[in-house]
Nucleic acid binder design. Structure first.
Lengths: 369, 369
DNA sequence: GTCGTGTTTCAAAACGTTTAGCTGCGCCTG
DNA sequence: CAGGCGCAGCTAAACGTTTTGAAACACGAC
């Protein structure tokens, strides 16, 4: 049954190759390939012979060889600043879920927000011939050489959570303006009329967007913009603490904080100053995490759709890979206002929450170490 | 200068290949390859001609082709239950750092702790011919077929944070026994002598190890083992809350909690019962995260070396890839007791901490959204 | 008998590298 | 000047697939 053709003998230490299967079952390589990719018409007897040989040899197609000839790796590269930053795991997960669904895998790189590491990573991914790249760009511009490469190379890029004016590529971002706007409107609806802001560094685009949303919401609600109620922080806990002290000394009755870490800092300041959260002032924070569920009062936050951010970016990228050329798209995802207790709707909200677990979204993903 | 040999013409839409460079610079493929891998002896003039051509064509070696012939992909597969589980990002990061350092990349998969997804992922990684696999095994056993495959296939596996008796492979885990032991000894040193335990599910091996450490430490310190002071939870917030109520009703003066989520639950119970932490009882928690820095009192915890877990696993794997065969190794990493305030050493510890930022390890990695 | 048509199978080229083996060539040595 | 030895560079095989074009064969129709 075997050993008809003069195909190469199988190497000892190696995994079985298609020609091993062919030899074992006495057919040509072509036929094996046809069976593996279950092409239409292979005779029943041959098909069975081949299938037996595949099982016997524990044959597994070599996707490297397939990639080489098909010029497709079914792999997408993803570069994030740091997977340890709690913002990103969910984004990566979203991208992986979407990619997986369409038969793609994720090659992950961390840039540490360093341009040099980012360049190395991109070069590497290009050399590995990934089919496309999801990039959360590090701060700063590409080197001219890399910029040229990116424009010329014909693999698609999709920017995640960043846009760069000099780079006309697809991007998927969150609508930070809208998120901030809603946050402030919610405070206003809750009857607050001296609303303060703890902002991120205004040179960063998303901080600026959040500030714009804050300002426009005040205007919309015909509330005064009081400059002493706007404090610029740097997105870290410590700066939230300091900004909190500064801001609270002016006794606002509502605060919107542009990031969850500064909220944590703020709450420490609140404790020190002996103030009470929903009673003395309403609070809306930005970006939500399961562990925030342990804070009292439960925080009303504007949640950024992190999973969706990753999945939509991956889907868009895969569309591009599939040949959908056309104008670059800028996709803005809407954040979601999660009303809990920190604005003073406690009685209503807590009733609703008592039915659910203490922290939501479910902390199921946190278990098992 | 060009067009001497009868090499194939370059395809239009494609990236430049080595033969394009050869044609452009009028040398053979061999010479280009030698220049790219800067092999020893290529004449200076030729080398420069080739280098110019490489720049001109923006040539980038195709690592797919290289992998095919070298039978090495310089890629390692990593399977974790869920990157969104906060335990894993740091482990993945550790693996990536170590891999990167040695010229390897990480292909990441999530198994959701499902055996089926785990199998699919492993099959895929094998087909992609990764050089090795880092696996945090999902609960349960491999299917017989897969088990056989894994034993026969000659790519190395290293288990991360798991060991399986039926699978004789390398493993890198944390020494949970030792961590628990130290935690309880610390409580004893702080003068506590009625120490309770909130344990994980005892069918899980690491929960059992932590329980053993707890019990042996009591014995060592000649303290009584009081069964009503041991409560089994399920590693979730809610169960910590319930266990806390049950446990505190017996008025222990020290508590060791086997996981950080249950600690969060416990602290809610503490608040409800009107107890105070270092005053009424000492507390040591397990596993540390930056955001725990915002709890008051600052928690004394046993930190698992997550980054090291990933990096040591990757290093071991790469050693195996490099051909270091030999008996499977079981590497236990020592956890680190981080003494803060929740055991009653407040005055000493807080002085030391006042110099540093409010939460440590540094929250630098948390910024920028 | 010849021609077309369709089915099943095959041989060989292609993908972009690395590398073993070989060819000249210049230089040294006797 | 013959022989040997490096050196620089080349040719061609190999890696494991997919896929093109064609062969072999059967079956009817003319």
């Amino acid at each position: 049954m075997s050993s008809s053709k003069r195909s190469r003998p199988s190497k000892p230490g190696r995994a079985a190759s298609i020609s091993d299967v062919a030899r074992e079952s006495g057919v040509s390589i072509f036929t094996v390939s046809a069976v593996v990719n279950n092409k239409s018409h292979v005779g029943k007897t041959l098909r069975e012979r081949v299938e037996n040989a595949i099982r016997k040899l524990n044959y597994r197609p070599n996707l490297i060889a397939r990639s080489l000839i098909k010029q497709k790796t079914q792999t997408i590269g993803m570069i994030v600043p740091d997977i340890v930053n709690p913002f990103f795991p969910m984004v990566v997960r979203g991208a992986e879920d979407a990619a997986q669904k369409q038969g793609y895998n994720l090659l992950l790189c961390n840039s540490d927000d360093s341009l040099a590491k980012e360049e190395t990573a991109i070069e590497l991914l290009l050399s590995k011939r990934v089919d496309g790249i999801l990039l959360t760009k590090a701060a700063g511009e590409f080197s001219p050489a890399l910029h040229k490469t990116i424009q010329e190379v014909n693999i698609p890029f999709v920017l995640v959570m960043r846009t760069y004016p000099t780079l006309t590529k697809d991007a998927v971002i969150t609508d930070d303006y809208q998120g901030a706007y809603e946050a402030v409107c919610h405070l206003a609806r809750a009857g607050r009329n001296r609303i303060g802001l703890i902002s991120g560094p205004l040179r960063i685009s998303n901080a600026k967007e959040r500030w714009r949303g804050f300002r426009d919401a005040l205007e919309e609600k015909k509330l005064p913009y009081e400059p002493e109620l706007v404090v610029e922080g740097d997105y870290r806990i410590e700066s939230g603490f300091r900004a909190g002290h500064a801001l609270l000394s002016h006794r606002p009755d509502g605060i919107y904080v542009a990031n969850h870490l500064m909220t944590i800092g703020l709450l420490q300041a609140v404790e020190e100053m002996g103030l009470k959260c929903p009673e003395d002032f309403g609070l809306v924070s930005f970006d939500d995490y399961p562990w925030l569920g342990v804070f009292r009062p439960r925080l009303t936050t504007v949640e950024l759709p992190k999973h969706q951010l990753g999945s939509e970016a991956a889907e868009l990228l895969i569309q591009r890979i599939g040949g959908n050329h056309g104008k670059p798209v800028l996709k803005k995802l809407l954040p979601e206002l999660r009303i809990r207790e920190s604005c003073g709707f406690a009685q209503f909200v807590s009733a609703e929450h008592r039915r659910a677990a203490p922290s939501e979204p479910s902390d199921a993903s946190l278990v098992n170490k």
